[in-house]
């Protein structure tokens, strides 16, 4: 029995061993620890005390900021991620071939993503979308009144969505890499058969790139649900005016490190895990219908 297990799994285990060690020690054990902490009152400076379901109870019944953070995060994920992916995919196909100065453009379009969530970007975003910012010069063309887009509670979240979409470089690069993996003879053969660009896009490119679209979708959703740095850096560590940019993970961070409630933060983390896992699971279920693998 054991030897059969060993015989079957020897080679895979060899390949998996670094990951298995890593995931056990650095992810699984800390996750179990945080699951335990989710049922405790833990301020990090003293030993945790068991409180049962109290954290979850407070979270779901009497914490209005918790629901605000959920709302903000859902808007960010379901508006920002599709927009970002559409932009990334369109530019990847355009920048894949047939334009003069391709590598120049590719590099330029990747610049925003290189900047990352740095302090410089935080200052810049405030300059762009502040009262005195150039975005106001732009909208005044359309006769709109100048306002502080970044601090007005009804618009501040959208400035962060713009930031997300603007930093579309990472999914774009992944799309580009995926496009490159499509064997060029497929296009050549189609061309000989007299196929047009639309045919090539819908019958060759899109089906063959579905694993990559799927990957980008899953990863961007997982990432956006946990978005932290843009709001943390641009909002100066707060949730912005009227908590309008209080991302879920930012609130979790505030709970843990500003309010010293790591137990509550752990409970939030596990709640988030369930949400993300649900959406990811749904995506995997639908994937059977539209994702085509070569194997």
């Amino acid at each position: 029995m054991i030897s059969r297990f060993w015989h079957k799994n020897k080679i895979p285990l060899l390949f998996l061993s670094p990951w298995l060690i890593g995931v056990t020690i650095l992810a699984f054990i800390p996750m179990i620890a945080s699951l335990y902490l989710a049922f405790t009152n833990y301020n990090m400076l003293q030993a945790p005390t068991w409180v049962g379901l109290e954290n979850f109870n407070t979270m779901l019944n009497s914490d209005s900021r918790f629901f605000q953070s959920l709302k903000v995060t859902f808007i960010y994920v379901f508006l920002g991620v599709p927009l970002q992916l559409i932009v990334a995919f369109s530019l990847a196909t355009v920048l894949n071939r047939g334009v003069k100065g391709l590598s120049f453009f590719r590099a330029i379009y990747y610049v925003p993503s290189i900047l990352g969530p740095s302090v410089a970007i935080a200052v810049l975003w405030r300059q762009l979308f502040g009262m005195e910012g150039i975005f106001n010069d732009f909208v005044s063309i359309f006769g709109l009144e100048p306002q502080s887009w970044i601090s007005d509670p009804s618009t501040s979240l959208y400035t962060l969505i713009v930031l997300l979409v603007w930093q579309f470089g990472s999914p774009m690069v992944i799309f580009l890499a995926g496009l490159k993996q499509i064997p060029s003879d497929l296009y050549e053969a189609a061309a000989i058969d007299g196929a047009g660009p639309a045919y090539m896009l819908f019958k060759i490119t899109l089906p063959l790139i579905t694993p990559i679209i799927f990957f980008n979708l899953v990863m961007q959703i997982i990432g956006a649900f946990q978005a932290f740095t843009p709001a943390y850096i641009i909002g100066g560590g707060t949730g912005g005016t009227l908590d309008s940019t209080l991302f879920y993970t930012l609130y979790l961070y505030i709970k843990a490190f500003t309010q010293f409630e790591m137990g509550y933060a752990s409970a939030m983390a596990w709640f988030l895990l369930v949400i993300i896992a649900t959406f990811t699971g749904l995506l995997f279920l639908t994937a059977r219908k539209w994702v085509h693998y070569q194997d």
């Binding site: 502080s148 601090s151 909002g235 707060t238």
Partner: peptide, 11 residues
């Protein structure tokens, strides 16, 4: 209010 809010976050 919106200018005050903006002020709270600037350098």
């Amino acid at each position: 209010a919106n200018i005050s809010a903006e002020q709270a976050g600037v350098p």
